[in-house]
Computed example of a mutant assay.
Amino acid sequence: MRLSDLSTRSGVPTATIKYYLREGLLPAGDRVTASRSEYTEAHLRRLRLVRALVQVGGMSIAATKEVIRAAEDDTLDQHQRFGAAQEALFSGRPDAEERPEPGTAARAAVDELLAETGWGECVDQPLYWNLVDAVTALERLGHPCDITRLRPYAAAVAPLTEYEVDVLAGYPDEEQLEAMVALTVLNEPILLALRRIGHAEVSATRFGSSGTGGHPAGAGAPNVG
């Protein structure tokens, strides 16, 4: 398909597509003439992924480039590329001097949880520090998040992650990495929205005015962390 066709089918303006091509977010098309290239369904799929990451996922162009670069690294096996893409997605790693010492309550709780679940492979990786940072922030706000508070979250997440990896395994090999990136970024707003809907419904049941049977119109879920 021509660039104009790619724009029509994706809904992305041609100027934006050209920008993505210059930035390396989209592979070059097959050159037909000096002024014209042809694009494939793979280009359309990649373009939709980039657009979703930037517009829905709120990722910067630089972060999106890092994720795609990791996903396309042929020197890594599938598991390693999954990990590299995840690291690029969540690259906020605190400087060494800012990391909580092993003896701090937050870090101790996280280490104990990962030891219990057998998820210790991520220790000292960006996702590990994301978790430690979150637990540390709760501690500093006066909301201790010890192992008993963390266990229900791990118990809820474990079957979900198994399900999501099973979903990814159902994709053709050449689509799995793109699917992993898309599902990682775009499933999180779904999880967050469902969690907040659940908060609102449970709050209405437990704390709502007697006889109303629901929460006030327009009220959102309470922020419980």
Rank of each mutant, 00 (worst) to 15 (best):
D124R: 03
C122Y: 03
P102S: 06
V110L: 11
A115Q: 14
V54H: 10
I68A: 07
A85S: 09
E72V: 00
E116G: 02
Q80S: 05
A115S: 14
A105P: 10
R93D: 08
D77Y: 03
A115V: 09
A105T: 13
V56T: 13
T64P: 11
V67F: 01
S91K: 10
R107C: 10
R81Y: 02
G103Q: 13
A63T: 15
P94V: 02
P94C: 11
Q78C: 03
T117S: 07
A71M: 06
R107Y: 13
A96E: 13
A84N: 08
Q78K: 09
L113R: 14
F82E: 06
G57M: 01
P100L: 12
T104L: 04
A62L: 08
Q125Y: 01
T104G: 04
A85L: 01
D77L: 04
R99G: 05
P94E: 01
Q80L: 07
R51G: 03
G92I: 14
E72W: 00
A62E: 14
G120N: 05
A96L: 12
P126H: 01
L53G: 07
A70Y: 07
L113S: 15
A96F: 10
A115H: 14
R99S: 03
A106T: 04
T117E: 15
D111F: 03
K65C: 01
E66V: 07
Q125C: 03
V110F: 05
A105C: 02
T104F: 03
A63P: 09
A84F: 02
T75N: 10
V56F: 15
A115M: 09
A63S: 13
R69T: 12
F82M: 03
R107L: 11
C122L: 14
A63G: 15
A62V: 07
V123Q: 06
G103R: 04
K65T: 15
V110T: 04
G103C: 12
T64W: 14
D73L: 02
W119D: 12
E97D: 14
